[in-house]
Simulated assay, not measured.
Amino acid sequence: MTNPVDELVASLNPVRDDDITTSDETARALLTAITTETPPAPAPRRRSRLHLRFAALAVATVAAAAAFIVFPGRDSGPLRSYANAAVQIDVTGKDEYAVEVKDAYADQREFREAFAKFGLDVRLSIVPVSPGEERRLIRVGPLHAPTGDEPAGGVTGTSDTDLKCPPDQGACPLRVTLGGAMFHLEGADVVLGRRARPGELYQDATPEPGDRPKSLRLTGRTVDQALVDLDRRGLTWAFSLGEFKPDGSGSSWNAPANWRPAGDRRITGAWMRSSASVGLLVTPEPGDPAPDPNN
């Protein structure tokens, strides 16, 4: 039995096999044309805006990174300036250096590190001093003993300070200029003064005759009288032994801590050792402590 669908499909194809009259030569020519024809080029793909934008961003990032990478030249020359949190040093001439202390309370190693950058062996100490003596150059000299490598005539060094500070300014930089070959060969020991914290011992306070300041009014009094007065003022004390001539020449040494002479001996000098301590000088007598050979 014939399916109606088969009849419908057959009616749609009016061409019969025997109607095809193409020769073998025609078929071969058609096959050759198909196989030898150059295929058309594919249509160019359209790149998305997002891809292009990402590529541009990547290029910009590389360019920015390159701007921060600096390769120092081989012939950049000797160091002319260096600074850290404690100090800034600038070369101002041959064997001459301008030193600006930015933090007088910094670790001393930071000062040493900065000088070492210039090949200098310098110990810069900034110590507490008496009121009114701040910002002064207390001492400058060689750090090491001569080595024998010094040129004929010896090695010289100079120093100059610009430590002025406006009265209404509580803190301002300390400046000192160092010059001379000694700072290369023998090193330098430089001591500057700074304001003392409460209770810090003043490094410039040394035994001398008389009262410093005069308001102490202790010279000439007995030891007992002086100690009673200091207790009343809430001040501690320490004794030194020594003797001085009217022209100021003489010598002294510190007595052991808490040593005190007999109460009827006389005070020959008094000075502020710190904001809370006073030094007292007495003339040595037999049986008093001798100078410490290690000091």
Results as ranks from 00 to 15, higher is better:
Y105T: 15
L143Y: 08
L185F: 02
T177D: 02
R233I: 08
D90K: 00
R123Y: 07
A86K: 05
A181T: 05
S277P: 03
A276I: 09
Q203P: 01
S252V: 05
N294E: 05
D121R: 13
T206D: 08
L8K: 12
P207H: 01
R109E: 09
S251F: 12
L124H: 05
F54L: 06
R195Y: 02
A257P: 07
V155Y: 05
P14N: 03
I267T: 11
V122E: 02
V228L: 12
V140C: 03
M1L: 15
E37I: 10
P209N: 11
R109N: 11
E133Q: 11
I20A: 09
A290D: 00
G193V: 04
R123Q: 13
Y105L: 15
T32A: 13
R194G: 06
T61K: 04
G199D: 10
P40I: 06
D75P: 02
D6Q: 12
A255I: 03
G279I: 09
P42W: 08
T32E: 10
V62R: 13
G279Y: 01
T21M: 10
L31Q: 10
F111K: 03
P207I: 07
A58L: 14
G154Y: 09
K102M: 12
N295T: 11
D160A: 15
D224C: 00
G148N: 11
Q88N: 14
P286E: 05
E100G: 08
I138D: 04
D229G: 02
I69E: 06
S215W: 06
A188E: 01
A114H: 09
K94G: 10
A29Y: 07
G193N: 08
F239V: 09
G154V: 08
L241P: 01
V9L: 14
L227G: 13
G193T: 05
P209H: 03
K94D: 12
D224G: 12
P78G: 04
P213K: 08
S23V: 10
P78Q: 02
S76G: 13
I267L: 15
T147W: 00
G248P: 00
P261T: 12
D264P: 00
P128L: 13
S48W: 02
P213H: 06
E110D: 12
S159I: 06
P286N: 09
R80P: 00
M272K: 14
G250N: 05
L280R: 13
L30R: 15
A196D: 01
Q108C: 05
W259L: 11
D19W: 04
R260D: 03
A86N: 06
R28G: 05
A64G: 14
D247S: 11
D18P: 03
R197I: 08
Q169G: 02
L218M: 11
K117D: 00
P78L: 02
L52V: 05
G287D: 05
L120Y: 06
L137H: 04
Y82Q: 00
A55D: 00
E150A: 15
D247G: 10
R112M: 14
D149G: 12
T61F: 03
A66M: 14
F68C: 14
P291D: 07
S215F: 07
E134G: 13
T177I: 14
T22S: 11
A41Y: 00
P142H: 03
Y202Q: 09
T2A: 15
P4V: 06
L281Y: 07
